[in-house]
């Protein structure tokens, strides 16, 4: 989603005739707002648009790419040209980020471990899949890691999960599927929990599929590592103060009363297609991002650095 938002903004930038910095920033802001209005859950999207805006501000503030002081106008043209030219590249980079996460994450998975995961994250799927493969770097050979996976399944995410599970099993990784309700039961057999995230918040917490928070709490209770695999472009300045501070209503909690089923089925409250929850940084041990492995406090620092 963040990447799609960035691509859309680049498209707008290409179509428009803006000629000054202020105009561009203005255009980006209005278009970002429009994008955010179009979806209910705009958190991941806003991280993308915000990153784009900050990049513009940042690169216009700095000396030109040759290291020489260029006039702002010239600098502006260079940056604009670069963005229009490389729109495709960003999507490609975002895709490559998953592979880089797999490389970074590999050394945190060890032989004989059991890993619990949840949801249909492609990042986690790639990470686990690559860990089960043999890698030959020329100087170094990485043998396949022999680990097991317990996959907690939520009926709402079943199709996505099944894709990942099939891919893992095809690679010879033993996968057990359990309902999300059995996580607590299975936790003592688990060495590490790895989940993906929709967005990473400014304090180093995560916003992920509904149910992730529960698993994080169970992992902490059982003193298991809770690891988040997320690309760097998912980091952003969102700072929720709790589960009901997203700026939109998910419709998860819906009170009804009445004796017959018909009486409370009349006006079903609309539930968000992909409900989310927020996991505080206290529950996260480690982030595996595409550029490095970080602690939550390090994530917070990167986000603050971006905002400066």
């Amino acid at each position: 989603m963040p990447i799609a938002a960035i691509e859309a903004l680049i498209e707008v930038l290409g179509q428009s005739q803006v000629a000054t910095v202020a105009e561009t920033i203005d255009l980006v802001e209005t278009q970002s707002a429009k994008l955010q209005c179009a979806v209910t859950n705009s958190i991941a999207l806003s991280h993308g648009t915000h990153l784009f805006r900050q990049y513009l501000v940042m690169s216009l503030k700095q000396p030109g790419p040759e290291g020489k002081e260029t006039s702002t106008q010239k600098n502006f043209d260079i940056v604009r040209q670069h963005l229009l030219r490389n729109g495709r590249l960003f999507a490609q980079r975002a895709k490559n980020a998953r592979e880089r996460i797999a490389v970074n994450g590999r050394r945190h998975i060890h032989d004989g471990e059991t890993i619990l995961t949840y949801g249909g994250s492609r990042v986690v799927g790639t990470l686990l899949g690559r860990a089960a493969e043999k890698h030959d770097f020329g100087h170094f050979v990485d043998d396949p890691i022999r680990f097991k996976v317990i996959y907690a399944i939520d009926p709402a995410l079943e199709t996505e999960s099944n894709k990942v599970i099939a891919a893992l099993r095809a690679k010879g990784v033993p996968v057990a599927t359990i309902p999300a309700t059995a996580v607590s039961y299975a936790m003592s057999k688990v060495d590490m929990v790895i989940v993906g995230a929709d967005a990473v918040t400014a304090n180093g917490g995560i916003i992920a599929r509904l149910g992730t928070f529960q698993i994080a709490q169970l992992a902490k209770e059982n003193k298991k590592q809770f690891v988040v695999a997320a690309e760097q472009h998912k980091f952003g300045k969102t700072f929720p103060c709790g589960q009901f501070d997203y700026g939109f209503d998910q419709g998860v909690i819906d009170f009804r009363a009445g004796s017959t089923s018909t009486s409370y089925n009349k006006i079903p409250k609309e539930t968000l297609a992909k409900p989310i929850d927020y996991t505080k940084p206290d529950y996260v041990n480690m982030f595996i991002a595409d550029h490095k492995v970080l602690t939550p406090s390090e994530v917070a620092k990167e986000v603050i650095d971006m905002l400066l």
Binding site: L89, A97, H291, K292, E302, D305
Partner: peptide, 25 residues
């Protein structure tokens, strides 16, 4: 570090960014 968050959008034609050579296989 400030730059690090922008690696996604960095210009590939300009000098390769500092962070790009890290942690790749």
């Amino acid at each position: 570090r400030t730059q690090s968050m922008f690696s996604l959008l960095a210009d590939p034609d300009v000098a390769p960014p500092l962070w790009s050579n890290g942690t790749t296989p």
